[in-house]
């Protein structure tokens, strides 16, 4: 997905994980800056084409000078060490209460600690990889499908969040009566209604949900189909 409006993203760390994340974000057209204390590794990242900045991440003033609390919207804390991540997350959360902070953890216990420190989302790479490997063992066909379609590289199907514009043909429809699967070759997973919070209401939910303005529907399908839906919704609005 391309970014809507230039968000400013800071990626802390310059190890393999940080570089991989930076690469993915760049491919999605995000503006980002890699920061770390280790000059040598930063240099490598700079050679890979990223904007870099050498910063002492334990110093609040230097964090402020990065734009934390002012311009930065998202912070990725991807340092090699769990303790460093926790420390950075705490400092950042204190400086900038409103931003999203994403971090990684090496162990299960740190997940909770990072969340307590103020991380919005904690990714446990080993847990996820371990689960994926288990899936390959346990139900190889599903694992392969998800790899080929949604989660792998060069995938064809995408998961998309599509906001419903006021007055579009979906406005006022019931969630389980959308029939987008025949009209657009899309599978509707559910809807996020901001009035009820940030979680996804599944299309299978027995409480029937009527879609209204500013709801976001979550669908899986090919990019062209998603674009078509977006366009036609805007057209009917």
């Amino acid at each position: 997905m391309s970014a809507t409006g230039r968000r400013k993203i800071v990626v802390a760390g310059s190890g393999p994980v940080a570089l991989e994340v930076a690469r993915q974000l760049r491919d999605r057209g995000e503006a980002l800056c890699l920061v770390d204390y280790d000059g040598e590794r930063l240099e490598k990242a700079r050679l890979a084409g990223f904007e870099v900045q050498q910063v002492n991440l334990q110093d609040d003033d230097e964090l402020l000078s990065l734009g934390l609390g002012t311009e930065v919207d998202v912070l990725f804390s991807l340092l090699d060490n769990d303790a460093d991540n926790v420390f950075l997350v705490i400092s950042a959360r204190a400086l900038a209460p409103g931003i999203s902070i994403v971090s990684i953890s090496e162990t299960e216990e740190t997940v909770k600690r990072l969340q307590a420190a103020g991380a919005t989302k904690v990714i446990d790479p080993y847990q996820i990889s371990g689960y994926r490997i288990y899936e390959m063992v346990h139900r190889p066909v599903i694992a392969e499908i998800m790899d080929r379609t949604v989660f792998g590289t060069d995938v064809d199907l995408e998961i998309a969040e599509i906001p419903v514009p006021a007055g579009s043909f979906l406005d006022g429809e019931y969630l389980d009566r959308l029939s987008l699967s025949s009209r657009y070759n899309l599978v509707v997973l559910g809807v996020v209604d901001r009035d009820y919070g940030d979680h996804l209401i599944f299309a299978t939910n027995p409480k029937r949900h009527r879609i209204d303005v500013d709801d976001v529907i979550v669908v899986i399908g090919q990019r062209e189909e998603l674009e078509r839906l977006r366009k036609e919704m805007a057209g009917t609005a």
Binding site: M1, I9, I159
Partner: peptide, 11 residues
Amino acid sequence: IAGEYIGQPVA
């Protein structure tokens, strides 16, 4: 995950 999360966190 980080990329997708930035794009569409809830979904």
